[in-house]
Amino acid sequence: MVFSLALRFVRDRAGAEELAQDVFLQLYRQLSRIESPAHATWWLRRAVCHRSIDEVRKRKLRPRVGLESAPEPADKTATPDLLLQDRLRKLVGLLPEKARMVVLLRYQEDLDPSEIAETLAMPVSTVKSHLHRSLTLLRGKLQKQEVCS
């Protein structure tokens, strides 16, 4: 969960690994405050969300190019589904930070809007609004790409 969320959010494997390690170390330092495994999961999810958002904001100030951001060589044997999934991942990566995290928590972690609201400390209505707008935007961009190609 921790590494995967960081990877999908920062879109850089090395950076995501470092970030996930930092989150686990932070948990290790605060282990005495953790009351149950469920509390640990909740804590980890919240910590990785906030740190990922911070990391992306920092990178905007000093851009850093990871291997993952380089375009992949064309593979004609790839199935259409894999191509579509790759495009979707890239489009999700272009979403604004909060909206991107909401989409990741919804479709990767399978959290419902109230759980996302609690994790990101935002109203449920804002979460729903982010989800609705993001899905519309993703659909629109995908269709636009299809028309262009």
Binding site: M1, V2, E17, L84, Q85, D86, L88, R89, Q108
Partner: peptide, 21 residues
Amino acid sequence: ESELRAALRAEAPPEDFAAKV
């Protein structure tokens, strides 16, 4: 939405991740 779920499926960390932590 199911395509989005498939695209964003969780990815396992590197094998030596736990050892590094």
